[in-house]
């Protein structure tokens, strides 16, 4: 027997799209107006960046002549895009599932399409907020300058777009498979931290042992960071990069692979997840978590 929702491919029409866009705007505004969310999110990240620049950001990266502070800014932008696309999306979807928002929308004609459009819009808004705030902080507190060559702007645009696209579907897929929001947050943070350490976000990747470099290069975070460094740092920085090159083709290749894999996997997982939801399953999970809290 086929599942009830498989043939119910979300119908795409303009009304549903508009509803989804409005939904995304509402969700984004909820994010942008939530003080706690801002403090743990973009505002907190900016404060951390400024503090780190003040503490460690003087002088140049040894042997390169590139500004340490600008390097830090580029790394932070990469990390923020990555974490917003992965964490915020995954945790948002998990919460929507646990609270029943997905179940409610699933029961509406076009509801799943509108939901996904809405989530996409809100996560893109969040990422844009991170990037704009980070770059503004970089302009204000470091020697960072916005690119002047059109080619650099183009690189900035595609690196951000592809960087988001390579991670966001994975975030959605994770949101679909994890069982429990709180455990998921803990596990994800740990994984992110590990990836951050090895991906050249904290210190140059060439300072790491060879195996760690290989692992890092399998993930999109490293490539996005590399792409951003190519935009904001002088070519003298290449002395500290693998192979002494910006390797933009490779960056585009790896990120595209992740994007394609994610885009193939995520819709399938999301559909499977919503099919399994029902009211009593929601209640059951809530009972379990209530019991756990009691201990």
């Amino acid at each position: 027997m086929s599942a009830p929702t498989t043939r119910e491919r979300p119908s795409v029409n303009t009304t549903v799209l508009r509803t989804g866009l409005r939904r995304g705007r509402t969700e984004y505004l909820q994010f942008a107006r939530d003080r706690r969310e801002l403090l743990t999110g973009p505002v907190g990240a900016v404060v951390m960046l400024v503090a780190l620049v003040g503490w460690q950001g003087h002088g140049t990266v040894p042997g390169t002549g590139a500004s340490k502070a600008v390097l830090m800014t580029a790394r932070f932008v990469a990390y923020c895009v990555f974490s917003a696309a992965l964490m915020n999306l995954a945790l948002g979807i998990t919460a929507d599932r646990e609270e029943g928002a997905l179940l409610r929308l699933r029961a509406l004609p076009g509801g799943m399409t509108a939901y996904l459009v809405g989530r996409t819009v809100s996560v893109l808004g969040q990422i844009a907020t991170y990037v704009v705030l980070m770059l503004a902080a970089g302009l204000a507190f470091t020697e960072l300058t916005l690119p002047t060559a059109p080619g650099d702007w183009l690189t900035l645009a595609w690196v951000l777009a592809l960087g988001t696209l390579s991670v966001a579907p994975i975030g959605a897929a994770l949101g679909a498979v994890v069982r429990d929001a709180r455990n998921a947050a803990a596990a994800l943070s740990l994984a992110m931290m590990g990836l951050m350490v090895i991906s050249g976000v904290l210190f140059p990747i060439t300072a790491l042992p060879q195996p760690a470099q290989w692992v890092a290069q399998a993930f999109p975070l490293y490539w996005q960071g590399l792409g951003l460094r190519s935009v904001f740092l002088p070519d003298s920085m290449l002395a500290a990069e693998i192979g002494g090159s910006w390797r933009l083709w490779e960056a585009a290749g790896v990120m595209s692979l992740w994007a394609v894999a994610g885009l193939l996997l995520a819709p399938w997982l999301l559909q499977r997840m919503t099919r399994r939801e029902s009211g009593s399953r929601l209640a059951e999970r809530r009972r379990h978590s209530a019991v756990r809290r009691a201990y």
């Binding site: 929507d96 609270e99 029943g100 928002a101 179940l103 409610r104 009211g279 009593s280 929601l282 209640a283 809530r286």
Partner: peptide
Amino acid sequence: LQDWRDHP
């Protein structure tokens, strides 16, 4: 449903 807490 019995216990809906969505869209808080």
